[in-house]
Design a protein around this nucleic acid. Structure first.
Lengths: 237, 237
DNA sequence: GCCCAGTTACGTACAGCGTACGTAGTGAGG
DNA sequence: CCTCACTACGTACGCTGTACGTAACTGGGC
Protein backbone atom coordinates (compact mmCIF):
# COMPACT_ATOMS: atom_id res chain seq x y z
CA UNK A 1 0.00 0.00 0.00
CA UNK A 2 1.39 3.36 -1.02
CA UNK A 3 1.60 6.39 1.27
CA UNK A 4 -1.34 7.43 -0.78
CA UNK A 5 -3.27 10.04 1.21
CA UNK A 6 -2.03 12.78 -1.15
CA UNK A 7 1.28 13.93 0.24
CA UNK A 8 2.24 17.54 -0.31
CA UNK A 9 4.20 17.74 -3.55
CA UNK A 10 4.10 19.32 -6.97
CA UNK A 11 3.32 16.79 -9.66
CA UNK A 12 6.30 17.96 -11.71
CA UNK A 13 8.69 17.00 -8.96
CA UNK A 14 7.53 13.41 -8.88
CA UNK A 15 9.19 11.28 -11.59
CA UNK A 16 6.87 10.08 -14.32
CA UNK A 17 8.26 6.58 -14.12
CA UNK A 18 8.94 5.12 -10.69
CA UNK A 19 12.22 3.36 -10.02
CA UNK A 20 10.60 0.17 -8.85
CA UNK A 21 7.58 -1.81 -9.87
CA UNK A 22 5.86 -2.63 -13.15
CA UNK A 23 6.00 -0.20 -16.06
CA UNK A 24 3.04 2.25 -16.06
CA UNK A 25 0.53 1.59 -18.80
CA UNK A 26 0.14 5.23 -19.84
CA UNK A 27 2.28 8.32 -20.11
CA UNK A 28 1.31 11.69 -18.67
CA UNK A 29 1.05 13.05 -22.19
CA UNK A 30 -1.48 10.36 -23.13
CA UNK A 31 -3.57 11.08 -20.08
CA UNK A 32 -3.44 14.83 -20.67
CA UNK A 33 -4.38 14.35 -24.32
CA UNK A 34 -7.50 12.41 -23.37
CA UNK A 35 -8.50 15.06 -20.84
CA UNK A 36 -7.91 17.85 -23.35
CA UNK A 37 -9.96 16.08 -25.98
CA UNK A 38 -12.87 15.72 -23.54
CA UNK A 39 -12.64 19.36 -22.45
CA UNK A 40 -12.51 20.57 -26.05
CA UNK A 41 -15.51 18.50 -27.00
CA UNK A 42 -17.78 18.78 -23.96
CA UNK A 43 -16.37 21.48 -21.73
CA UNK A 44 -14.12 21.46 -18.70
CA UNK A 45 -16.85 20.21 -16.40
CA UNK A 46 -17.10 17.04 -18.48
CA UNK A 47 -13.54 16.18 -17.45
CA UNK A 48 -14.13 13.82 -14.55
CA UNK A 49 -11.77 11.23 -13.22
CA UNK A 50 -14.26 8.52 -14.16
CA UNK A 51 -14.60 9.71 -17.73
CA UNK A 52 -10.89 10.22 -18.34
CA UNK A 53 -10.14 6.80 -16.91
CA UNK A 54 -12.92 5.30 -19.00
CA UNK A 55 -11.72 6.80 -22.27
CA UNK A 56 -8.18 5.89 -21.35
CA UNK A 57 -9.28 2.31 -20.84
CA UNK A 58 -8.52 1.77 -17.18
CA UNK A 59 -10.39 1.72 -13.90
CA UNK A 60 -11.21 5.01 -12.26
CA UNK A 61 -8.94 4.58 -9.31
CA UNK A 62 -5.99 3.54 -11.43
CA UNK A 63 -5.81 7.12 -12.63
CA UNK A 64 -4.79 8.13 -9.12
CA UNK A 65 -1.51 6.32 -9.62
CA UNK A 66 -0.62 8.92 -12.21
CA UNK A 67 -2.40 11.94 -10.84
CA UNK A 68 -2.66 12.25 -7.06
CA UNK A 69 -5.41 14.89 -7.19
CA UNK A 70 -7.74 16.13 -9.86
CA UNK A 71 -6.10 19.53 -9.74
CA UNK A 72 -2.94 17.86 -11.01
CA UNK A 73 -4.85 16.59 -14.00
CA UNK A 74 -5.65 20.20 -14.82
CA UNK A 75 -1.97 20.99 -14.51
CA UNK A 76 -1.13 18.27 -17.03
CA UNK A 77 -3.72 19.71 -19.40
CA UNK A 78 -2.32 23.22 -19.16
CA UNK A 79 1.17 21.94 -19.75
CA UNK A 80 0.20 19.91 -22.80
CA UNK A 81 -1.57 22.87 -24.35
CA UNK A 82 1.27 25.26 -23.51
CA UNK A 83 3.36 23.05 -25.76
CA UNK A 84 1.28 24.18 -28.73
CA UNK A 85 3.23 27.43 -28.80
CA UNK A 86 5.38 27.38 -31.88
CA UNK A 87 8.28 29.34 -30.52
CA UNK A 88 10.77 30.57 -33.14
CA UNK A 89 14.32 29.41 -32.62
CA UNK A 90 15.30 32.84 -31.35
CA UNK A 91 13.76 36.30 -30.94
CA UNK A 92 14.15 38.72 -33.84
CA UNK A 93 15.51 41.58 -31.78
CA UNK A 94 12.30 43.59 -32.15
CA UNK A 95 10.81 42.91 -28.72
CA UNK A 96 7.56 44.66 -29.51
CA UNK A 97 6.90 42.54 -32.58
CA UNK A 98 8.05 39.39 -30.80
CA UNK A 99 5.76 39.92 -27.83
CA UNK A 100 2.86 40.74 -30.12
CA UNK A 101 3.48 37.47 -31.90
CA UNK A 102 3.57 35.53 -28.65
CA UNK A 103 0.37 37.19 -27.46
CA UNK A 104 -1.41 36.30 -30.68
CA UNK A 105 -0.16 32.76 -30.30
CA UNK A 106 -1.53 32.56 -26.77
CA UNK A 107 -4.80 34.01 -27.91
CA UNK A 108 -5.13 31.45 -30.68
CA UNK A 109 -4.40 28.60 -28.29
CA UNK A 110 -6.88 29.81 -25.72
CA UNK A 111 -9.56 30.23 -28.33
CA UNK A 112 -8.86 26.74 -29.58
CA UNK A 113 -9.25 25.42 -26.03
CA UNK A 114 -12.00 27.53 -24.48
CA UNK A 115 -11.54 25.98 -21.04
CA UNK A 116 -8.00 27.34 -20.82
CA UNK A 117 -8.98 30.80 -19.63
CA UNK A 118 -10.70 29.26 -16.61
CA UNK A 119 -7.60 27.30 -15.69
CA UNK A 120 -5.23 30.17 -16.42
CA UNK A 121 -6.96 32.49 -13.99
CA UNK A 122 -6.39 29.76 -11.40
CA UNK A 123 -2.73 30.14 -12.30
CA UNK A 124 -1.12 26.84 -13.11
CA UNK A 125 1.85 28.84 -14.26
CA UNK A 126 4.80 26.66 -13.35
CA UNK A 127 4.52 23.61 -15.51
CA UNK A 128 7.59 22.86 -17.65
CA UNK A 129 6.09 24.17 -20.87
CA UNK A 130 4.66 27.25 -19.18
CA UNK A 131 8.10 28.02 -17.83
CA UNK A 132 9.60 27.49 -21.25
CA UNK A 133 7.14 30.02 -22.62
CA UNK A 134 7.92 32.50 -19.85
CA UNK A 135 11.63 32.10 -20.41
CA UNK A 136 11.21 32.72 -24.11
CA UNK A 137 9.09 35.80 -23.42
CA UNK A 138 11.86 37.21 -21.26
CA UNK A 139 14.37 36.36 -23.93
CA UNK A 140 12.39 38.52 -26.36
CA UNK A 141 12.83 41.38 -23.93
CA UNK A 142 16.64 41.22 -23.93
CA UNK A 143 16.88 44.30 -26.17
CA UNK A 144 14.70 46.27 -23.77
CA UNK A 145 16.72 48.21 -21.25
CA UNK A 146 14.66 47.68 -18.12
CA UNK A 147 15.27 45.96 -14.80
CA UNK A 148 14.10 42.34 -14.62
CA UNK A 149 11.29 43.27 -12.27
CA UNK A 150 9.78 45.52 -14.92
CA UNK A 151 10.20 42.91 -17.62
CA UNK A 152 8.33 40.38 -15.53
CA UNK A 153 5.58 42.93 -14.97
CA UNK A 154 5.36 43.50 -18.70
CA UNK A 155 5.06 39.81 -19.47
CA UNK A 156 2.47 39.44 -16.72
CA UNK A 157 0.42 42.32 -18.12
CA UNK A 158 0.49 40.88 -21.61
CA UNK A 159 -0.60 37.46 -20.40
CA UNK A 160 -3.26 39.14 -18.29
CA UNK A 161 -4.65 40.97 -21.30
CA UNK A 162 -4.74 37.77 -23.34
CA UNK A 163 -6.53 35.83 -20.62
CA UNK A 164 -9.00 38.61 -19.85
CA UNK A 165 -9.98 39.28 -23.42
CA UNK A 166 -10.28 35.67 -24.48
CA UNK A 167 -12.32 34.96 -21.36
CA UNK A 168 -14.68 37.80 -22.20
CA UNK A 169 -14.97 36.60 -25.75
CA UNK A 170 -15.74 33.05 -24.78
CA UNK A 171 -17.70 33.26 -21.56
CA UNK A 172 -21.15 33.42 -23.15
CA UNK A 173 -20.57 30.40 -25.33
CA UNK A 174 -19.07 28.45 -22.45
CA UNK A 175 -21.77 29.35 -19.98
CA UNK A 176 -24.35 28.04 -22.40
CA UNK A 177 -22.88 24.56 -22.19
CA UNK A 178 -24.45 23.92 -18.80
CA UNK A 179 -27.79 25.39 -19.82
CA UNK A 180 -30.80 23.43 -20.98
CA UNK A 181 -31.53 25.92 -23.76
CA UNK A 182 -29.62 27.14 -26.77
CA UNK A 183 -26.90 29.78 -26.94
CA UNK A 184 -29.08 31.88 -29.24
CA UNK A 185 -32.00 31.76 -26.80
CA UNK A 186 -29.67 32.78 -23.96
CA UNK A 187 -28.21 35.66 -25.95
CA UNK A 188 -31.69 36.76 -26.96
CA UNK A 189 -32.89 36.78 -23.37
CA UNK A 190 -29.92 38.70 -22.03
CA UNK A 191 -30.04 41.38 -24.71
CA UNK A 192 -33.78 41.71 -24.21
CA UNK A 193 -33.27 42.23 -20.49
CA UNK A 194 -30.44 44.68 -21.13
CA UNK A 195 -32.57 46.65 -23.58
CA UNK A 196 -35.39 46.86 -21.03
CA UNK A 197 -33.04 48.06 -18.32
CA UNK A 198 -31.46 50.66 -20.57
CA UNK A 199 -34.91 51.88 -21.58
CA UNK A 200 -35.61 52.89 -17.97
CA UNK A 201 -33.27 55.83 -18.37
CA UNK A 202 -31.35 54.92 -15.23
CA UNK A 203 -28.17 54.31 -17.23
CA UNK A 204 -27.99 57.09 -19.81
CA UNK A 205 -24.29 56.71 -20.63
CA UNK A 206 -24.48 52.95 -20.84
CA UNK A 207 -27.44 53.33 -23.15
CA UNK A 208 -25.57 55.84 -25.27
CA UNK A 209 -22.59 53.50 -25.48
CA UNK A 210 -24.75 50.57 -26.55
CA UNK A 211 -26.57 52.76 -29.07
CA UNK A 212 -23.29 54.12 -30.39
CA UNK A 213 -21.67 50.88 -31.47
CA UNK A 214 -23.32 49.70 -34.64
CA UNK A 215 -22.92 46.18 -35.90
CA UNK A 216 -20.84 43.36 -34.44
CA UNK A 217 -17.67 44.21 -32.56
CA UNK A 218 -14.38 43.05 -34.04
CA UNK A 219 -12.93 41.28 -31.02
CA UNK A 220 -9.50 40.86 -32.55
CA UNK A 221 -9.26 44.59 -33.21
CA UNK A 222 -10.26 45.33 -29.62
CA UNK A 223 -7.64 42.89 -28.42
CA UNK A 224 -4.98 44.42 -30.65
CA UNK A 225 -5.73 47.89 -29.38
CA UNK A 226 -5.50 46.82 -25.75
CA UNK A 227 -2.30 44.91 -26.35
CA UNK A 228 -0.63 47.75 -28.17
CA UNK A 229 -1.59 50.14 -25.38
CA UNK A 230 0.18 47.92 -22.89
CA UNK A 231 3.26 47.56 -25.07
CA UNK A 232 3.35 51.30 -25.76
CA UNK A 233 3.26 52.07 -22.07
CA UNK A 234 6.50 50.15 -21.65
CA UNK A 235 8.12 51.42 -24.81
CA UNK A 236 7.70 55.01 -23.74
CA UNK A 237 8.85 54.38 -20.20
CA UNK B 1 -47.10 23.04 -9.60
CA UNK B 2 -44.97 25.78 -11.05
CA UNK B 3 -43.55 25.70 -14.57
CA UNK B 4 -40.42 24.93 -12.68
CA UNK B 5 -38.02 23.21 -15.06
CA UNK B 6 -35.87 26.37 -15.16
CA UNK B 7 -37.28 28.49 -17.94
CA UNK B 8 -34.88 30.73 -19.84
CA UNK B 9 -34.81 34.07 -18.08
CA UNK B 10 -32.47 36.42 -16.29
CA UNK B 11 -33.10 36.46 -12.57
CA UNK B 12 -33.24 40.26 -12.59
CA UNK B 13 -36.18 40.24 -14.94
CA UNK B 14 -38.30 38.12 -12.63
CA UNK B 15 -39.99 40.18 -9.90
CA UNK B 16 -38.72 39.52 -6.41
CA UNK B 17 -42.23 39.32 -5.04
CA UNK B 18 -44.84 37.46 -7.09
CA UNK B 19 -48.26 39.03 -7.61
CA UNK B 20 -50.15 36.07 -6.20
CA UNK B 21 -49.52 33.61 -3.44
CA UNK B 22 -48.14 33.78 0.06
CA UNK B 23 -45.51 36.34 0.98
CA UNK B 24 -41.97 34.94 0.54
CA UNK B 25 -40.17 34.34 3.82
CA UNK B 26 -36.84 35.84 2.69
CA UNK B 27 -35.63 38.65 0.48
CA UNK B 28 -32.97 38.23 -2.18
CA UNK B 29 -30.69 40.44 -0.14
CA UNK B 30 -31.00 38.14 2.88
CA UNK B 31 -30.24 35.08 0.79
CA UNK B 32 -27.27 36.76 -0.88
CA UNK B 33 -25.95 37.90 2.49
CA UNK B 34 -25.96 34.35 3.83
CA UNK B 35 -24.18 33.06 0.73
CA UNK B 36 -21.60 35.84 0.92
CA UNK B 37 -20.96 35.13 4.58
CA UNK B 38 -20.36 31.46 3.84
CA UNK B 39 -18.06 32.23 0.91
CA UNK B 40 -16.08 34.73 2.96
CA UNK B 41 -15.67 32.28 5.79
CA UNK B 42 -15.15 28.96 4.02
CA UNK B 43 -14.57 29.70 0.36
CA UNK B 44 -16.83 29.72 -2.68
CA UNK B 45 -16.98 25.94 -2.86
CA UNK B 46 -18.59 25.86 0.57
CA UNK B 47 -21.57 27.69 -0.89
CA UNK B 48 -23.95 24.85 -1.62
CA UNK B 49 -27.69 25.05 -1.96
CA UNK B 50 -28.05 22.82 1.09
CA UNK B 51 -25.82 24.93 3.26
CA UNK B 52 -27.32 28.25 2.24
CA UNK B 53 -30.81 26.90 2.81
CA UNK B 54 -29.72 25.45 6.13
CA UNK B 55 -28.22 28.67 7.44
CA UNK B 56 -31.19 30.56 6.10
CA UNK B 57 -33.47 28.26 8.05
CA UNK B 58 -35.47 26.60 5.32
CA UNK B 59 -35.50 23.36 3.39
CA UNK B 60 -33.05 22.89 0.57
CA UNK B 61 -35.59 22.86 -2.18
CA UNK B 62 -37.37 25.94 -0.90
CA UNK B 63 -34.37 27.93 -2.04
CA UNK B 64 -35.27 27.09 -5.61
CA UNK B 65 -38.34 29.26 -5.27
CA UNK B 66 -36.05 32.24 -4.99
CA UNK B 67 -33.17 31.13 -7.17
CA UNK B 68 -33.98 28.94 -10.16
CA UNK B 69 -30.40 27.78 -10.64
CA UNK B 70 -27.29 27.91 -8.54
CA UNK B 71 -25.67 30.23 -11.04
CA UNK B 72 -28.32 32.78 -10.14
CA UNK B 73 -27.25 32.58 -6.53
CA UNK B 74 -23.78 33.61 -7.67
CA UNK B 75 -25.35 36.50 -9.52
CA UNK B 76 -27.10 37.64 -6.33
CA UNK B 77 -23.79 37.46 -4.47
CA UNK B 78 -21.98 39.57 -7.05
CA UNK B 79 -24.75 42.12 -6.99
CA UNK B 80 -24.78 42.40 -3.22
CA UNK B 81 -21.04 42.89 -3.11
CA UNK B 82 -21.09 45.39 -5.98
CA UNK B 83 -23.23 47.49 -3.69
CA UNK B 84 -20.26 47.92 -1.36
CA UNK B 85 -18.85 50.52 -3.72
CA UNK B 86 -19.13 53.87 -1.99
CA UNK B 87 -19.71 55.97 -5.06
CA UNK B 88 -19.35 59.72 -4.51
CA UNK B 89 -22.40 61.75 -5.40
CA UNK B 90 -20.74 62.93 -8.57
CA UNK B 91 -17.37 62.70 -10.33
CA UNK B 92 -14.82 65.41 -9.57
CA UNK B 93 -14.06 66.28 -13.18
CA UNK B 94 -10.60 64.67 -12.99
CA UNK B 95 -11.37 61.42 -14.78
CA UNK B 96 -7.94 59.97 -14.10
CA UNK B 97 -8.22 60.46 -10.35
CA UNK B 98 -11.82 59.29 -10.34
CA UNK B 99 -11.08 56.08 -12.18
CA UNK B 100 -8.09 55.42 -9.97
CA UNK B 101 -10.36 55.77 -6.97
CA UNK B 102 -12.92 53.39 -8.42
CA UNK B 103 -10.23 50.85 -9.25
CA UNK B 104 -8.89 50.98 -5.72
CA UNK B 105 -12.41 50.55 -4.43
CA UNK B 106 -12.91 47.48 -6.61
CA UNK B 107 -9.60 46.10 -5.51
CA UNK B 108 -10.48 46.53 -1.85
CA UNK B 109 -13.83 44.82 -2.34
CA UNK B 110 -12.33 41.89 -4.20
CA UNK B 111 -9.66 41.44 -1.58
CA UNK B 112 -12.33 41.52 1.10
CA UNK B 113 -14.23 38.80 -0.78
CA UNK B 114 -11.57 36.56 -2.28
CA UNK B 115 -14.10 34.49 -4.20
CA UNK B 116 -15.12 37.52 -6.26
CA UNK B 117 -12.31 37.26 -8.77
CA UNK B 118 -13.47 33.76 -9.70
CA UNK B 119 -16.99 34.97 -10.31
CA UNK B 120 -15.93 38.13 -12.09
CA UNK B 121 -13.95 36.24 -14.69
CA UNK B 122 -17.17 34.34 -15.36
CA UNK B 123 -18.66 37.75 -16.02
CA UNK B 124 -21.84 38.31 -14.10
CA UNK B 125 -21.63 41.89 -15.28
CA UNK B 126 -25.24 42.92 -15.69
CA UNK B 127 -26.72 42.89 -12.24
CA UNK B 128 -28.33 46.18 -11.15
CA UNK B 129 -25.46 47.23 -8.92
CA UNK B 130 -22.85 46.23 -11.47
CA UNK B 131 -24.61 48.36 -14.03
CA UNK B 132 -24.79 51.22 -11.58
CA UNK B 133 -21.05 50.95 -11.15
CA UNK B 134 -20.47 50.83 -14.91
CA UNK B 135 -22.68 53.84 -15.43
CA UNK B 136 -20.80 55.78 -12.79
CA UNK B 137 -17.48 54.79 -14.36
CA UNK B 138 -18.65 56.17 -17.69
CA UNK B 139 -19.86 59.29 -15.94
CA UNK B 140 -16.35 59.86 -14.66
CA UNK B 141 -15.19 59.80 -18.26
CA UNK B 142 -17.46 62.65 -19.37
CA UNK B 143 -14.52 65.10 -19.41
CA UNK B 144 -12.58 62.76 -21.68
CA UNK B 145 -13.04 63.56 -25.33
CA UNK B 146 -13.28 60.08 -26.79
CA UNK B 147 -16.01 58.12 -28.60
CA UNK B 148 -18.13 55.92 -26.35
CA UNK B 149 -16.59 52.78 -27.77
CA UNK B 150 -13.17 53.86 -26.51
CA UNK B 151 -14.54 54.80 -23.12
CA UNK B 152 -16.08 51.38 -22.73
CA UNK B 153 -12.78 49.81 -23.70
CA UNK B 154 -11.03 51.90 -21.08
CA UNK B 155 -13.42 50.87 -18.34
CA UNK B 156 -13.11 47.24 -19.42
CA UNK B 157 -9.32 47.42 -19.30
CA UNK B 158 -9.34 48.93 -15.84
CA UNK B 159 -11.72 46.29 -14.53
CA UNK B 160 -9.63 43.63 -16.23
CA UNK B 161 -6.49 44.86 -14.50
CA UNK B 162 -8.23 44.85 -11.13
CA UNK B 163 -9.55 41.33 -11.57
CA UNK B 164 -6.30 39.96 -12.94
CA UNK B 165 -4.10 41.41 -10.23
CA UNK B 166 -6.34 40.56 -7.32
CA UNK B 167 -6.72 37.04 -8.67
CA UNK B 168 -2.96 36.66 -8.85
CA UNK B 169 -2.59 38.01 -5.36
CA UNK B 170 -5.17 35.69 -3.91
CA UNK B 171 -4.92 32.48 -5.88
CA UNK B 172 -2.37 30.79 -3.66
CA UNK B 173 -4.30 31.43 -0.48
CA UNK B 174 -7.56 30.34 -2.09
CA UNK B 175 -6.13 27.20 -3.62
CA UNK B 176 -4.90 26.14 -0.23
CA UNK B 177 -8.46 25.99 1.06
CA UNK B 178 -9.13 22.70 -0.69
CA UNK B 179 -5.82 21.20 0.34
CA UNK B 180 -5.24 18.88 3.29
CA UNK B 181 -2.06 20.71 4.30
CA UNK B 182 -1.28 24.26 5.32
CA UNK B 183 -0.71 27.29 3.12
CA UNK B 184 2.84 27.59 4.42
CA UNK B 185 3.61 23.97 3.54
CA UNK B 186 2.17 24.50 0.06
CA UNK B 187 4.18 27.68 -0.48
CA UNK B 188 7.29 25.95 0.80
CA UNK B 189 6.87 23.05 -1.60
CA UNK B 190 6.22 25.20 -4.61
CA UNK B 191 9.17 27.50 -4.01
CA UNK B 192 11.39 24.47 -3.39
CA UNK B 193 10.32 22.98 -6.70
CA UNK B 194 10.79 26.30 -8.47
CA UNK B 195 14.26 26.69 -7.02
CA UNK B 196 15.21 23.21 -8.17
CA UNK B 197 13.96 23.89 -11.67
CA UNK B 198 15.76 27.20 -11.88
CA UNK B 199 18.95 25.53 -10.69
CA UNK B 200 18.97 23.34 -13.79
CA UNK B 201 20.02 26.34 -15.87
CA UNK B 202 17.27 25.76 -18.39
CA UNK B 203 15.64 29.07 -17.53
CA UNK B 204 18.46 31.57 -17.15
CA UNK B 205 16.37 34.73 -17.49
CA UNK B 206 13.66 33.45 -15.18
CA UNK B 207 16.35 32.59 -12.67
CA UNK B 208 17.88 36.02 -13.02
CA UNK B 209 14.50 37.65 -12.52
CA UNK B 210 13.80 35.63 -9.39
CA UNK B 211 17.29 36.36 -8.07
CA UNK B 212 16.90 40.05 -8.86
CA UNK B 213 13.84 40.81 -6.75
CA UNK B 214 14.90 40.99 -3.16
CA UNK B 215 12.40 40.78 -0.36
CA UNK B 216 8.63 40.60 -0.56
CA UNK B 217 6.88 42.27 -3.49
CA UNK B 218 4.62 45.22 -2.75
CA UNK B 219 1.50 44.05 -4.53
CA UNK B 220 -0.26 47.38 -4.23
CA UNK B 221 2.64 49.17 -5.89
CA UNK B 222 2.64 46.66 -8.73
CA UNK B 223 -1.08 47.18 -9.12
CA UNK B 224 -0.71 50.96 -9.11
CA UNK B 225 1.95 50.83 -11.78
CA UNK B 226 -0.15 48.63 -14.04
CA UNK B 227 -3.21 50.78 -13.53
CA UNK B 228 -1.41 54.01 -14.25
CA UNK B 229 0.08 52.54 -17.41
CA UNK B 230 -3.41 51.75 -18.66
CA UNK B 231 -4.72 55.19 -17.76
CA UNK B 232 -1.72 56.88 -19.34
CA UNK B 233 -2.24 55.02 -22.57
CA UNK B 234 -5.67 56.62 -22.85
CA UNK B 235 -4.62 60.02 -21.64
CA UNK B 236 -1.99 60.32 -24.34
CA UNK B 237 -4.31 59.04 -27.05
C1' DG C 1 -66.92 36.32 1.53
C1' DC C 2 -65.70 32.82 -1.17
C1' DC C 3 -63.05 30.31 -4.65
C1' DC C 4 -59.27 28.75 -6.96
C1' DA C 5 -55.10 29.69 -9.55
C1' DG C 6 -50.63 30.49 -8.53
C1' DT C 7 -47.31 30.48 -5.24
C1' DT C 8 -44.53 28.82 -1.27
C1' DA C 9 -42.59 25.00 1.31
C1' DC C 10 -40.13 20.88 1.48
C1' DG C 11 -39.18 15.62 1.65
C1' DT C 12 -37.57 12.15 -1.33
C1' DA C 13 -34.78 10.49 -4.89
C1' DC C 14 -31.33 10.18 -8.63
C1' DA C 15 -27.25 10.63 -11.10
C1' DG C 16 -22.94 12.26 -10.76
C1' DC C 17 -18.70 13.81 -8.40
C1' DG C 18 -13.78 13.33 -5.86
C1' DT C 19 -11.43 10.16 -3.48
C1' DA C 20 -10.23 6.96 0.95
C1' DC C 21 -9.36 2.30 1.56
C1' DG C 22 -8.45 -2.64 0.94
C1' DT C 23 -6.78 -6.26 -1.80
C1' DA C 24 -4.56 -8.77 -5.52
C1' DG C 25 -1.06 -9.10 -8.89
C1' DT C 26 3.51 -7.77 -11.01
C1' DG C 27 8.31 -7.11 -11.84
C1' DA C 28 12.92 -5.25 -10.77
C1' DG C 29 16.89 -4.65 -7.06
C1' DG C 30 19.39 -6.94 -3.43
C1' DC D 1 14.94 -16.15 -5.35
C1' DC D 2 12.92 -13.31 -2.22
C1' DT D 3 10.99 -9.04 -1.06
C1' DC D 4 8.76 -5.00 -1.39
C1' DA D 5 7.46 -0.91 -3.93
C1' DC D 6 4.55 -0.25 -7.28
C1' DT D 7 0.36 -0.90 -10.43
C1' DA D 8 -4.47 -2.01 -10.89
C1' DC D 9 -9.12 -1.50 -9.54
C1' DG D 10 -13.72 -2.67 -7.08
C1' DT D 11 -16.35 -0.88 -3.42
C1' DA D 12 -18.06 2.61 -0.63
C1' DC D 13 -18.81 7.28 1.57
C1' DG D 14 -20.21 11.78 1.72
C1' DC D 15 -21.11 15.37 -1.02
C1' DT D 16 -23.24 17.96 -5.01
C1' DG D 17 -27.25 20.15 -8.11
C1' DT D 18 -31.80 19.57 -8.96
C1' DA D 19 -36.31 17.01 -10.97
C1' DC D 20 -40.57 15.79 -9.13
C1' DG D 21 -44.66 15.16 -6.19
C1' DT D 22 -47.44 16.81 -2.55
C1' DA D 23 -49.41 19.79 0.94
C1' DA D 24 -50.40 24.33 2.72
C1' DC D 25 -51.39 29.03 2.01
C1' DT D 26 -53.05 33.60 0.05
C1' DG D 27 -54.57 37.42 -2.60
C1' DG D 28 -57.45 39.12 -6.78
C1' DG D 29 -61.88 38.62 -9.24
C1' DC D 30 -66.56 37.52 -8.79
Amino acid sequence: MAGRPAEPEVIWSRPERAARGPRPAYTRAEIAAVAVRIADADGLDAVSMRRVAGELGCGTMSLYNYVPRKEDLYELMVDLVADEHELPERPTGDWRADLTGLAHGSRAIMRRHPWMSRLMSAAYGFSPNSMKFLEYSLWCLDPLDLPYGQKVELVAMVNGVVTTYVANEIETAERTRSLPWSAEREQEIRTAHLAKELATGRYPRLAAAVAADSGPVDMEAVFDRALSRVLNSFARG
